[in-house]
């Protein structure tokens, strides 16, 4: 069992967390002005990095989203960080 660290609840088992995608994948603003390509890029296309990854995760038990830096090969994970500002 791997332990991830929620910035609000502290260290918790991996089963309590849900992957939320790439950090910085912002929803394109402007409704009609957003092209189908731009929209699908936001919805479906992913960085999917091998190695260092900056991701959004959700702690299912408290319902909070947060940022977490992880390595997708070694699976080492840094403590989660609050989302805020431009992140």
């Amino acid at each position: 069992m791997q332990i991830f660290s929620c910035p609000f609840c502290g260290p918790r088992p991996e089963c309590e967390f849900h992957f939320g995608g790439d950090l910085g994948n912002h929803r394109p603003e402007g409704f009609a002005a957003v092209s189908a390509t731009e929209w699908s890029n936001y919805l479906y296309f992913r960085n999917n990095p091998k190695g260092a990854a900056d991701e959004v995760w959700m702690h299912l038990t408290c319902g909070e989203m947060f940022a977490m830096a992880r390595d997708t090969v070694t699976m080492a994970a840094e403590p989660g960080r609050r989302l805020g500002g431009g992140a």
Binding site: P13, C15, F19, E55, V73, M75
Partner: peptide, 13 residues
């Protein structure tokens, strides 16, 4: 495994 990974191991849960 519900955690994106390139490590060919797999987790216990």
């Amino acid at each position: 495994d519900r955690i994106p990974s390139y490590g060919q191991r797999g987790n216990l849960p």
